[in-house]
Design a protein around this nucleic acid. Structure first.
Lengths: 342, 342
DNA sequence: CGTTCTACGTATACCGTTCTACAAAACGAT
DNA sequence: ATCGTTTTGTAGAACGGTATACGTAGAACG
């Protein structure tokens, strides 16, 4: 066991004794519950200050709330998630809440075990980012614990809240932009997941497909799946770019894939956008670097994180109706999709 | 408050009743403490299985350990930290431990408040990555809670453990490599922190300085500090590259800075490595992308994370002596530092 | 002046574990 | 059979908060 701290902890009891009030009174001040006079509150707060009192989270967990929110991330490497987290932190800044992050490595089993462990730890709420689970599972989770999700399309569910960008519209903007710049054989690189309508990639695929038809490019629709791993992505893209009918443009479901695509193109001696246009999604910090100069769709991760956190706290405070926040995506044009040379 | 779950929880009591034993017996099985027969253990485990029992973390926190480790990260955007976390997860895979991640945004105040909040939550141990605090503070933290640190040089402290690469050697390798490839005016871009010997940047500065002297390039030693922000880094690098005596090579303390440097160089129409060599540190995934092709120092983040987690658990289990793991860095040469054209 | 409210405080059961102290049972050696 | 000794199991007091139920003093009212 850890080196025994024999210095007895400052508890609510110590504070009560110091302030000359009851334990219950101190607890009331802490939770700022009904029935405390300004005088009492002041006295108690002074004592807490003086003694440097800090509430014991475990003890709280026994009866009330823990003021801790669980955050579920699919992976650490995607810089987009950092934007979301920044928004979450912003929303939580003036509150008592703290966050606890778990990384699921995009595996549904890890996801579920993390959720269990968060529930064991009595998290007050759960904020999931792009989860892999089917909507039935998400719903059953949200019945056990207040839940908000970023990047998950379930507008019909009332037991949980979501914050999304309009992925269909975002993808459509990409296609229209590329079409306007003279590209016709536009291939989409997506994620290899079981086709569930709820995940963002499937929504983006829909937007891509619809916009391609709208622009009369229906015969060029081509959606290629690839796993998350660097190796797999590069293999798939390389295969595409070496094929007889090489695409004129690649629309990648997320920036990370687009960056790998840029790498493969460079390896093969293809110039971007001369021989190939590339567009990503998320508008992460890497897009703006000159060596990438990657056109991408900005979905305001920070706003999504902020809103999701706000919704989650509302939900914890008792809201029963589902709230589904949607932000409009915005195409940020950079060098990688400049007009096609005829 | 959250929607009241009226379904009463499966507790240790339920399990005890189901197995027909005492609460204490169940607790013993859980902690696998001394004095349980195989028969009893089997019976209790069967009951736990059947009832799908899960221990309540808050209740545990009241008396014993929480089986939760706090991890302190300076920021989410540096992909190097993902490697470290992967190592930590690997070490924890076969244990009961879970992790809770907090992001300090490289600010000492946030760092300290996160530490407090982890202690409030009765974390069994703390794993810090590249903390900003002075060693006295780190020591005082390690007296309050078992502590392991990655990327922090305090070999003299016995109250905490560390896992590091040899930053002096890593930086020296970079300088020797560049010198061998014909570069002489090698400038180092470092982090603007109060000069504390414990932080990795200062160690790398030392390695840089020593190797420069060793190669007879003492008069070219130039160490330029820059903040973490993208804007600041780009400004500093731009200023360097536009100066009269433009450096022939840049050694950046971390890959992120090197990537920004590549961007600025491209913006200014400088070719890498023709006009300028660039070397980073950490060998993150971005180095390998063809558009970056960035020479970098690999410090095996995964190994560091694994070792740190291992040391931390040993420490929690009672080890009193300090253990300081060191791995040798390895230079990974890529396009950005090819021999200088004469 | 008695009664009813309201505002403020307090006493205390309770949450789900851990762990110490102890009882009972089983064993071994005379 | 008797007496230690060891093994196995149990009872119950903590741990530090929360929240319910209740007491009490004034104020407001009739």
């Amino acid at each position: 066991m850890a080196p025994a701290t024999k210095i007895s902890r400052v508890t609510i009891k110590t504070v009560a004794a110091d302030a000359g009030v009851s334990v219950a009174a101190v607890s009331k001040v802490l939770r700022d519950a009904y029935g405390v006079s300004d005088a009492l509150r002041a006295r108690v707060q002074a004592s807490m200050e003086r003694l440097n009192y800090r509430p014991h989270a475990g003890a709280r967990a026994m009866r009330g709330r823990t003021y801790t929110l669980g955050i579920l991330l699919p992976d650490m490497r995607n810089p987009f998630f950092a934007d979301i987290l920044a928004g979450v932190n912003e929303a939580l800044e003036r509150t008592q809440y703290q966050t606890m992050i778990g990384v699921s490595r995009s595996a549904e089993t890890i996801e579920m075990s993390l959720i269990d462990s968060m529930i064991d730890r009595q998290m007050d709420g759960l904020l999931m980012i792009g989860p892999r689970m089917p909507p039935e599972t998400a719903e059953s989770v949200s019945i056990r614990i207040p839940t908000a999700i970023v990047g998950y399309h379930v507008p019909e569910l009332a037991t949980l809240d979501t914050a999304n960008n309009d992925d269909v519209a975002g993808a459509a903007q990409v296609v229209r932009h590329l079409a306007a710049n003279g590209y016709r054989r536009i291939t989409m690189v997506t994620l290899a997941v079981p086709t569930k309508n709820v995940v963002v990639t499937v929504q983006r695929e829909r937007g891509y497909r619809e916009a391609m038809k709208e622009r009369g490019l229906g015969q060029h629709v081509n959606i290629v799946p690839a796993d998350q791993t660097a190796r797999e992505v590069q293999t798939v893209v390389r295969h595409l770019l070496e094929s007889r009918h090489r695409p004129e443009a690649l629309f990648c479901w997320t920036d990370m894939v687009a960056l790998h695509a840029l790498s493969v193109a460079k390896d093969l001696g293809l110039s971007v956008p001369g021989d190939l246009a590339i567009v990503g999604y998320d508008n992460t910090i890497y897009c703006d670097l000159a060596q990438n100069s990657l056109t991408s769709v900005d979905q305001s991760g920070q706003v999504l994180g902020l809103q999701a956190a706000r919704l989650l706290i509302e939900r914890i405070d008792g809201r029963q109706l589902g709230d589904h926040f949607v932000v409009s995506p915005r195409l940020v044009v950079r060098g990688s999709s400049r007009p096609r040379p005829s």
